[in-house]
Amino acid sequence: MTEKDIKLKLKCSPEEGFRALFDEYWSYAYTIIYSILRGTGSRTDVEDCTADVLSDVMMNYDTSRETSLKAYVGTTAKRRAIDMKRSMNTHTARNIPLDEDTEYCIPSDDNVEAETESSDISAIILKKIEELGEPDASIVIQKYFYDRSSAETARLLGINPVTVRSKLHRALKKLKKALTDMGITL
């Protein structure tokens, strides 16, 4: 479903519109929020925050706007997650270091090079993971990005947990070889 269709649905029938909006973007919002709240909040916090974001978007997004709905969801998710992280850190008497807040962070000259390099490596790794094909790529992502156990990954992908483990093992081997061929040693 395109953004235009979702906007049209939101205008005509808010309930159907929300369903469409949810189906299209919940995973997107969840991932952004998860990447920010990882290590600070529980999965329930991530779910709560995702629900907050999507309901915020539903209630506040102006369908007549020309701006991208996806970008709006992404920005709302990021801001809400940062807010939540700050709040949780206040509760646990910890504060977010300034450099974690990407929204307000101004990279210093020294950091720019390192950040670019790190960004390049993550992009290369992701590309190589994708080249593993499915379901190996999904297994690696679920395991190392979402920190899911083999059982959880198996349930999500609809395969046997033993198969997940063996596929993961093989996928990592392939990934290592591919990276070594490129001159990258991890």
């Binding site: 919940w26 995973s27 997107y28 919002a29 969840y30 991932t31 952004i32 998860y34 990447s35 990882r38 992404g74 990407t102 950040e115 790190s118 960004s119 490596i121 993550s122 992009a123 790794i125 992701l126 994708e130 790529a137 999904s138 992502i141 679920q142 190392y144 990005f145 979402y146 349930r155 999500l156 991890l186």
Partner: peptide, 21 residues
Amino acid sequence: ILHNADKKTVCHIAEKYKAAD
């Protein structure tokens, strides 16, 4: 590397992979 991935990579993962069941 994946945990410290930049925004672009996170967005890419968000678009391509299922986040939860």
